[in-house]
Design a protein around this nucleic acid. Structure first.
Lengths: 205, 205
DNA sequence: ATTTTACTACTGACTGGTCGGTCTATTCAA
DNA sequence: TTGAATAGACCGACCAGTCAGTAGTAAAAT
């Protein structure tokens, strides 16, 4: 059993994993610009400066590449949710933390997120099922914060499902309008959104 | 110059326009289910029960069909904004009216809206420019309500651009989660969203 | 009343080209 | 000398769009 060439359980070296990672990231950019279905594997080869053989050596198939981009987004989103949960605080603070973490992912991985929110219907079979499960898991985490807030009396009684839809839409949709390095920073947007959602926009009476 | 066969300025009869309308609507459904790029013109023929010749006799090209679906959505959205403006009221009432009209379009034309929000990057040249202009025009209308509210003191001072992005995201994103005939009615969702946005979710102190 | 003309509405075979993916051959590092 | 890494020719399938032809019908001409 050789020890110099270290391989993981899929039988691939760390070097292979790193190169694959690079290719996934570069391809996400192309998908974000042209769309998944509209991007040919030949274009992916050009963007990565490699031939078809090398491309398929790393990605397996076009759909597996798409799934890898989705995984990357969900990994980051879940990590952000973990950090927000670890920070603790009142339901209001929890919600603000969750929002800032989500916006942070959207600003740090704009291409991946674009692909994630646009081309998920192209996933089939097991890939689609995995995607749906992870997405649902995240939505449940958000919903539980709303439920806690209602129970503790911090939030007024409300339909938590509708609140989740409103909150997710408000944050996710920024991938269309806001970019890193643009007019607003993550913290500014997160603050403004948390204020609107928690306190509303009406003047106090 | 014959008078019996009535044609419009494009030289097409009312009958032709009606049939085209049917084909646009049926095609929107297929695009929503399978995606614009993933749908072949042969599939569109099958869905409409016609051959290639007839399809192109009515649609001109695949992209013109896509543009027609976009026009249909924007026409309805603008009509809704007109109705909301005509109803008048305070900035708060204006905003609530605008939200209900927008959600109404999303519930009445779920397929068209799905295509509108998913496949707009496939529009090119003049089609893309027209789409962008109309979208911007609508966003300006929404923003002006926020500006009026801030000026009148009904709304607290806020960045109106960020507020528009938050408001649009909250409403538009429902196309993913909410369907007509589902658990919630348009009025329920509109009410819940207006309450959250205007008053926030925190309990009053 | 009947033929001719003109035009709408439509078919489906066909075209040039592109697609995702495979395969054989080759390079190169260890 | 072995196997990881790579190129690019190649494959069958499928793509958007075209075209020659035609059935049906309403208007015009006879």
């Amino acid at each position: 059993m050789p020890q110099t060439r270290v391989k993981d359980k899929q039988g691939k070296s760390a070097k292979w994993q790193a190169r694959r990672h690079e290719i996934v990231d570069a391809s996400a950019k192309v998908f974000a610009e042209r769309g998944y279905h509209a991007t040919s594997t030949t274009e992916l080869c050009e963007a990565n400066g490699i031939g078809k053989g090398a491309l398929y050596y790393y990605i397996g198939s076009k759909e597996q590449l798409l799934a890898a981009i989705h995984d990357r987004v969900m990994d980051e989103v879940m990590l952000g949710a973990d950090r927000a949960a670890l920070a603790g605080g009142t339901p209001r603070e929890q919600l603000a933390g969750l929002g800032e973490e989500l916006l942070d992912v959207i600003f740090r991985f704009p291409d991946h997120v674009w692909v994630f929110l646009h081309d998920f219907p192209a996933l089939t079979g097991k890939n689609a099922e995995m995607f749906r499960q992870r997405r649902r898991a995240y939505e449940r985490r958000v919903e539980s914060v709303f439920q806690q807030g209602v129970e503790s009396g911090d939030f007024r009684p409300l339909d938590t499902r509708l609140a989740v839809i409103a909150w997710l839409g408000m944050h996710n949709y920024t991938y269309l309008s806001l970019r890193a390095g643009g007019h607003f920073s993550v913290k500014e947007v997160a603050k403004a959104f948390a204020d609107i959602f928690v306190w509303g926009i009406a003047t106090r009476g």
